[in-house]
């Protein structure tokens, strides 16, 4: 069924964007392309609009945090061409302290909540998003829960002190 090969997609992307494509690799069965942050939206738009690649479905997106890397924050997007069953993952990283990305809500309305989720968990801003506010957590929450430094456990627990659990 699948007539789009990873090579074809990489070639097309390289021709179109040149040095903006930082790396591309097959991770298990998934083509993963790392893109410079400033052209990530153009790449996604190209994948969406290109008649042959036709990645018309946004499967998912999520934020990433690697505190040990120089470019510690990142976004991951997964696109899908359901006709040819071709999937591609786009990753992008940034070293900014307050990372910001371009919104995809004008391409897919489904990006709306996923971007709000990324904002909620990681504090990423999305330029052009219609309603950039927390979605899952309380508005009063301080900090960004999925960043690695955020503590998992509720800091106000009284019953789990060291006396009882020996931690």
């Amino acid at each position: 069924m699948s007539n789009i090969t990873a090579e074809l997609a990489i070639e097309k992307l390289n021709n179109q964007f040149g040095d903006q494509i930082i790396s591309s690799e097959m991770l298990y069965d998934f083509l993963t392309v790392t893109v410079a942050r400033k052209s990530v939206k153009d790449v996604i738009k190209f994948l969406h609009d290109d008649a042959e690649l036709n990645c018309h479905f946004l499967t998912t997106m999520c934020g990433l945090h690697y505190p040990d890397q120089a470019e510690q924050f990142g976004m991951m997007y997964q696109l899908h061409n359901m006709v040819a069953n071709f999937r591609i993952r786009i990753k992008t990283f940034t070293s900014d302290a307050e990372p910001a990305f371009e919104t995809l809500t004008d391409i897919w309305p489904s990006a709306n909540w996923m971007e709000r989720e990324a904002y909620d968990f990681f504090g990423f801003r999305f330029h052009g998003h219609p309603k950039m506010k927390r979605i899952l957590n309380m508005d009063s929450l301080e900090g960004w829960p999925l960043r690695k430094e955020f503590p998992l456990e509720d800091p106000f627990r009284a019953d789990k002190d060291d006396k009882m659990f020996g931690r």
Binding site: L136, N137, M138, L141, P145, F150, P151, L152, E153, D154, P155, R157, D159, K160
Partner: peptide, 12 residues
């Protein structure tokens, strides 16, 4: 007690 969800978002 909050069960297995000993997390920042769940009431214990």
């Amino acid at each position: 007690t909050g069960g297995i969800f000993d997390t920042y978002s769940v009431l214990q």
